[in-house]
Amino acid sequence: MRITRQLKIIYMLLKMKLSRNMAFRFSFFGVFFVDGSLFLIQLLMFSTIYSQVGSIGGWDRSQMLFFIGTFSLINALNMFLYFFGVISIPGKIKSGELDLYITKPVNSLFHLSFESMDIGSLPLVFASIGILVYAASGMHKQITILTIIGYAFLVFMMLVLYYDMEVILRTIPFFVIQASSIERLEGEVITLCMKIPGTLFKGAFKFLFYLVLPYGIMATVPTQFFAGTLTLVGFVYSILIAIAFTAFTFAFWKLGLKCYKSASS
């Protein structure tokens, strides 16, 4: 009952977002080109780098490509589902626009997150899947339905983890006034660790990007699973991390709401 109601609201929000987009046809297609160009550039960059060597961190070419496909997929799903909603949060905290969300009988974080779904990113989701299929075909590996289900499940969990990180950083403006550099930091950290195979991190970096800012596992773990190199410990660890961060995110958001100052207009 609760779930169906939430889904219904997501559906309504998506429908309204679509109609709002239709009102600006140019932007509607524009977003696709913006996301598409970014996608292409990233793909180009990493395939160029990884093409320089035969293997990297124990991964061969097709596994590398599959890794690129995985982070593209997570990123594209993120943009499609919640990215634009989540990034609007600091602005809404600052302007006091959050008031209207707080007084609605729907979880305010949920409402904010799924209010600005971006249809323009949907083609990128398919493009990413295309890369994945191409990479998988080069892996010379028996692919069972179980591999696909497990992979999809891990991608989903990592998508949740990605969401958690995105929200946590955007909850900070509840407590401090100037937080733009924090977002900037996020952008840099993402370029940094989500796109480097986590297996390359050693020592303190491993601790940092596997536990503190777990961007390092997001694209790595599903890829490892698909390639059959993920240990059971690694599997359980990534699930636990996702659950722990989700619990923290909700608690942190709640705490943030308690500290909300609601700027008077």
Binding site: I9, M12, M16, R20, A23, P105, H111, S265
Partner: peptide, 28 residues
């Protein structure tokens, strides 16, 4: 319900009827 003269809860680019439909879901 709260109405703030300076903050609008209506979507500017849609009709009011559209927002009402969303509110119907939100408020069940």
């Amino acid at each position: 319900s709260i109405v703030m003269g300076q903050k609008s809860q209506l979507f500017q680019d849609l009709s009011a009827a559209d927002t009402f439909l969303l509110l119907k879901e939100i408020y069940d």
